[in-house]
Design a binder for these strands. Structure first.
Lengths: 196, 196
DNA sequence: TGATCCATGTAAGCCGTTACATGATTGG
DNA sequence: CCAATCATGTAACGGCTTACATGGATCA
């Protein structure tokens, strides 16, 4: 019975449709611009097939709206079964949150990289953080006290902390750059065991 | 010439080998336990093939060590070409950092989910954060002032901020649970346009 | 005695991205 | 006039995970 865990993209579609009817195109936009981007960042190539499957399984319905001069829109709406399976899916033990950072790998190799590389990596990371913060702050039309405001607050808290750390310590990192430790590169190293 | 960007797993292998010779098995361990887990979390199924390809391309060398009673270990060592391409790869404009959270989706649907689900999602997320923080703090054998200490500091800053937010606001979130707004579920919604 | 660690690898399959195909309308 | 927006889809390809296959040694 339990359709055994929806794929992330299907979950995303149902979550967005839960709040109102949408076309595939609009779901894509909302997944990127709205506050769903922290969940998955889906592309058309995964959204359209997912919607087709959801429709086949009866979790959403489609209604086609003809338009002059434009391809007809397919407007999807969630069904009771869809709402039920979404709640079920969200009730399963959650997979852990994931944080993946190319930037931190660059930071880890600060000594071995040219100063310019470390500098621009820091600058780029900073730009990203500021942009995300602005985005978050700009988009919360939710009255305070709602779930939307809660998750926005969470995001702001994390991003602000990153930004603060970066601003406080980036100079120190840049100062390390371009000074590979003599011979430390690949000294036959006392074999990993010795590390313990 | 530019072997055009290494795959994440290849980059990981070279990064770890840069610090010393390792077997595939050890690389896996280090990618999970060491401070590389923020970068990618690779499995054997991706590490072994990656090492084979790196060896074929001359970025690493292999030396086989026979052992009695155990399968022989293949010890990989990075070459000059390997070091060069790693630096080159890390010098390319970095792809943006990624944060993916199932937990935040649950939080967004707090109203629509049973109290118990929200409660345990919060508890689970908290447990994860504490574990990661302990892990980070426990493992920094690096003297302060090193790149390793820098990235550990970054991680601690982010995780602490998340934890602080959670501790300060989780009760409010749980209090929202199980009270779906009347009819707000799928009211035909004023069509997304109206939101602008 | 049974689980866990060491140790290497392969094969199937999933899930998703990128690029392609098409094309009118609107805004700068 | 050019770019972006609206709008739907397919096909090829890529990368990673899961499960399988094997098996002695060590520890509880």
């Amino acid at each position: 019975m339990v359709a055994d865990a929806l794929s992330p993209v299907s979950t995303l579609c149902l979550a967005i449709l839960y709040r109102g009817d949408r076309t595939g195109y609009e779901i894509k936009k909302e997944s990127v611009e709205g506050d769903y981007s922290y969940f998955v960042d889906a592309s058309y190539g995964s959204i359209y097939p997912a919607l087709a499957r959801l429709a086949g399984d009866g979790y959403v319905t489609v209604r086609e709206e003809l338009q002059s001069g434009r391809p007809s829109r397919k407007i999807y709406a969630i069904t009771d079964a869809g709402r039920a399976i979404l709640v079920e899916a969200l009730s399963l033990p959650p997979s852990p949150d994931v944080f993946r950072s190319r930037f931190l790998l660059v930071a880890k190799f600060a000594l071995e990289l040219p100063v310019s590389v470390v500098e621009s990596a820091v600058a780029e990371r900073r730009r990203e953080l500021v942009a995300e913060l602005d985005h978050l702050r700009a988009m919360c039309p939710d009255e305070p006290g709602t779930a939307g405001a809660w998750i926005t607050g969470y995001g702001v808290a994390c991003l602000s902390a990153s930004l603060a750390y970066l601003d406080a310590h980036s100079e120190r990192l840049v100062a390390m750059a371009g000074r590979p430790v003599e011979g430390a590169a690949n000294r036959p190293v006392p074999v990993p065991d010795a590390a313990e």
